[in-house]
Write a protein that binds this DNA or RNA. Sequence first.
DNA 1: TAAAATAACGTCTAGACAGCATGTC
DNA 2: CTAGACGTTATTTTA
Length: 747
Amino acid sequence: MDVSEVSGVPPWFADHLREEGIESLYPPQAAAVDAGVADGESLVASVPTASGKTLVAQLAMLSAIDRGGTALYIVPLRALASEKREEFAAFEEYGLSVGVTTGSYEDTGEWLADKDIIVATSEKVDSLVRNGAPWIDDLDCVVADEVHLVDDEHRGPTLEVTLAKLRRVNPNLQVVALSATVGNAGEMAEWLDAELVDSSWRPIELRKGVHYGQALHFGDGTQQELPVQRTEKPTEAVVRETLDEGGSTLVFVNSRRNAEGAAKRLAKTTVDGLDADERAALSSLAEEIRAVSDTETSDDLADCVEQGAAFHHAGCSSEHRSLVEDAFRDRLIKTICATPTLAAGVNTPARRVVVRDWRRYSGDAGGMQPLSVLEVHQMMGRAGRPGRDPYGEAVLLADSHDELDELLDRYVWADPEPVESKLAREPSMRTHLLATVASGFADSRSALLSFLDRTLYATQYRHGDGEDNLERVVDTTLSYLETNGFIDRDGDAIEATDLGHTVSRLYLDPMSAAEIIDGLADAASPTAMGLYQLVARTPDMYELYLRSGDREEYTMLAYEREAELLGELPSEFEEGRFEDWLSALKTARMLEDWASELDEDDIAERYGVGPGDIRGKVDTAEWLLGAAESLASEQDLADVSAIREARKRVEHGVGEELIDLAGVRGVGRKRARRLYDAGIETRADLRNADKSVVLAALRGREQTAENVLEAAGHQQPEMDGVTPDADVKESAAAAGTDDGQANLGDF
DNA sequence: TAAAATAACGTCTAGACAGCATGTC
DNA sequence: CTAGACGTTATTTTA
């Protein structure tokens, strides 16, 4: 089908596509048009990665906008929100406006209601619905990207319930659900009352196979020689061979340590194939990586990158990750060894994909578990760069004949599992039942049940795919919510209490709220440590692992600082609770270290985490402390200013005395400390400071000093002719570090 | 006797959304 | 109910 044959979309769109080199639609896209995506018809598109899902979404959104409507694009990750925003930015020259909103980032200036297209994460949409954002009622088209994630135990129910709410508010809403190929696309279509396009067509061929011995065994029965030398491992052989053909390789492994280890080994392979230009470009990239953060992870990554290899996992900071992704797309980095972060994240296609580990440790299951077919297919789907490679190849590795057969059976020839609603699990129920009641979607038990009838769970139950736990879980959850004062019940009727409304609005898990309220209730003026431990033991915070030896260390710490900890220390004999308490304590001490200006690399080493983990914990703590602050002031619980101070301290990573200074733009934890040690203790001091002292404290960086003074509101920030004051000494704390600012910025 | 090969043992284990009010180097 | 890769240290084998 030619692009100009599509009716319903604005006329410029065909021209725009032709400019991009797109003349005709791919078969699944044509099928979507035939199904009516451009005429407001709802659609489930279950198609492989890189087969043009985004264009289907664009057809739907643009035709809706052409009819005078607005569109919402829901993504599962913040990184994807920015990626989509970039993609849609091209429409701005045709007069459309695009906005993004996620928890950490809101589009500048204008209110989102003015936008034609809004990109948001599913949680953000949920939150906006709860808070009654006005434009939610005026949506005409909603695109849900990666909708197979409704299968996810933690975040799936949010998407499921949010879609149900959006459809309830806008009865004529067009829903376009984009999914990877799954086992039950038809069921999803039934749930959403949508047409179905279920296709395995790909623009470039993807050959899936298993490497065993000296050859690749493809699913279609063909074989291809791929010799492994005696000194190397199969992964190295694949990378080497791909490199010889001028292609890059993505290697998926099952742990961070393996990712780093494999990257270090593969660097020895990739380094041989680099030309002089590449070496130069890579070494400047390595410098950029080193500058991101002064940690071992950062150095290790830079060392690999210099040789053309990289690792990628959640311990890397977001800057690390995007630098690596970009360089891989530019074909500068030849191989990335990654944990599943990369499979779900932004687009990083490669000639070959190696799924090295097909089992992963799972604490719940008590051992190594095979990955799901869906997940392996998602990884494999990264093979083949449209317009660049003639085909993509994705291989698993076997080291016995039996394993070869098993892998072919299990992953190469297998169809992905059906996606299964996880709605009827208590943790998500707590949150969503409260939110549904609080935001007025249901005012009784029966209304709640009939609302839940619009979910995938109900559709699947009707098919007899599982027993109906829903009613039972609803009842236990409602009594939990009632006991803890989030709702009031009167017979069938249900009403959210003031507290319930607040908790729903704050986007807190009610159990977290209960824990916080309980903890604050018995401490009038809590310490920072106490507050950190309190929010760390909340279900909204993933705690740090307790490693061997930690148990002892943190048990001692728990008794040492028992007076500060909020709530009652569980008994050592309550295995689970005590362990949780200790890992929360470990997390808390990490936050305390951060808020005591300990260097990032010291924290990384002390807790065995990467810069990305520190950032994550700090972020979550900041958010939860903000929520605690709201709860404390509304419920009149504890000293609100103590909570605010603890929050400010994690936010900036500084001691109490630096909070004021660190609030100045351009002043982070390191610069604030230097200024303070030079006698400039507050924002007001800075405003009236002696310029030569400021310059000396900032180690003679004139431009920096000028910017800082300007941000503080100094009368004459210009530094011309100012010489550093010789009396200002390097403080011990600040000495030795390079550039000053601790870098924990967002991407 | 020292170095190298091998066995035994211990450790560790993926990911990442959200409030609110304004501005990171 | 369920594991396996990797690093470190102890033990045996080899030159």
